[in-house]
């Protein structure tokens, strides 16, 4: 054996030390399976959009988009149908606004308390209740609003003149439904603010409230905005509370003491009714669903821009 051959053999055997002991087919298989899992959500989203789009396009063959947006009157199932979607959008916005007036202050207050003030023991005691509140089915919230909150709390206790179905009761109860989402997501954001920033502020003679509001809150802003957006999305998409306690009367007013109908309540009520498949009444369900989808999408896009602009990056 000549010396060069010997040394090349030696090199090859040395490489073999670091080579794989046997081919790992399993790893490739797992990679493929996991990719398929990830693909499921992509396909689902695409499928939903496509199914919405088909019927929505059919709907807008009959009704002009202009009338749909500016019409101002919604009576698609009447013999003389009107297809102005604004009353439904108005109902959704109204009840969402009431919900947020309740949920944002309570949710952020809860988050600041849990993240900055509460001792570990108190936090451990409060969090399960928050999670319990988040776990209550919305239909329970709906009947609670209709059969207890409206007649007992609003009418008897607070003496407010409201109809049996009204946006005030539905909105407030929806606010309690959204509260745990806002509280726990924004608390996560605040807890993630490094302790070194708090110490820096305390070291300058700041009080607890000043540290919470001027250091922690702005530093956690992106998490807080994400929490609110999540809350708004839940409120806009919420169906059961508004279906049960809303009254299903399309309303363009902004008085929350009156009955109203939201986009989701219309879809649910019409969908379980007896509109024949393929009729214009049936297609309105998809058109309204698509509208809801577009509104939520816009909301997300705007809030992402907002967060990018105002986010305070620490490290």
């Amino acid at each position: 054996m000549d010396p060069t051959q010997a040394s090349s053999q030696q090199a090859a055997s040395r490489t073999a030390i670091l080579g794989a002991a046997r081919p790992r087919y399993g790893e490739k298989l797992i990679r493929v399976i996991l990719f398929a899992f990830a693909l499921v959500s992509v396909l689902t989203t695409t499928g939903i959009i496509v199914s919405l789009l088909g019927n929505t396009i059919d709907f807008f063959d009959v009704v002009s988009i202009w009338d749909y947006i500016t019409g101002g009157e919604w009576s698609p199932l009447f013999s003389d149908p009107k297809f102005g979607v604004w009353p439904l959008v108005n109902g959704t916005l109204l009840v969402t606004a009431v919900a947020l007036v309740v949920a944002i202050p309570l949710g952020l207050g809860t988050a600041i308390y849990l993240s900055e003030y509460a001792s570990r023991r108190v936090r451990k005691a409060i969090k399960p209740f928050l999670e319990l509140l988040a776990g209550i089915p919305t239909i329970v919230f709906g009947y609670f609003a209709l059969t207890y909150f409206t007649p007992v709390v609003l009418k008897q206790f607070l003496g407010i003149e409201v109809g049996s179905f009204n946006a005030l009761s539905a909105g407030i109860i929806m606010g309690f439904m959204v509260l745990p989402t806002i509280a726990s997501v924004s608390e996560d954001g605040m807890s993630a603010v490094p302790a070194s920033l708090r110490e820096g502020a305390y070291g300058l003679g700041a009080s607890k409230l000043q540290v919470s509001l001027r250091i922690v809150f702005p530093a956690a802003l992106s998490g807080i905005v994400a929490a609110i957006v999540l809350g708004v999305s839940r409120a806009i998409g919420e169906t059961m509370i508004v279906l049960i306690a809303g009254g299903q009367i399309p309303n363009t007013g902004i008085d929350p003491r009156e009955a109203f109908e939201t986009m989701t309540a219309f879809i649910a009520a019409t969908g379980k009714g007896d509109v024949p498949t393929g009729s214009i009444g049936y297609q309105t369900i998809f058109a309204v669903g698509f509208t809801l989808f577009v509104i939520t999408l816009l909301l997300n896009a705007v809030s992402i821009r907002f967060v990018r602009k105002y986010r305070q990056v620490y490290e």
């Binding site: 490094p194 920033l197 820096g200 305070q312």
Partner: peptide, 9 residues
């Protein structure tokens, strides 16, 4: 402090 901790401002 040990590590510079400027505020994100």
């Amino acid at each position: 402090f040990q590590k510079p901790n400027p505020f994100p401002k």
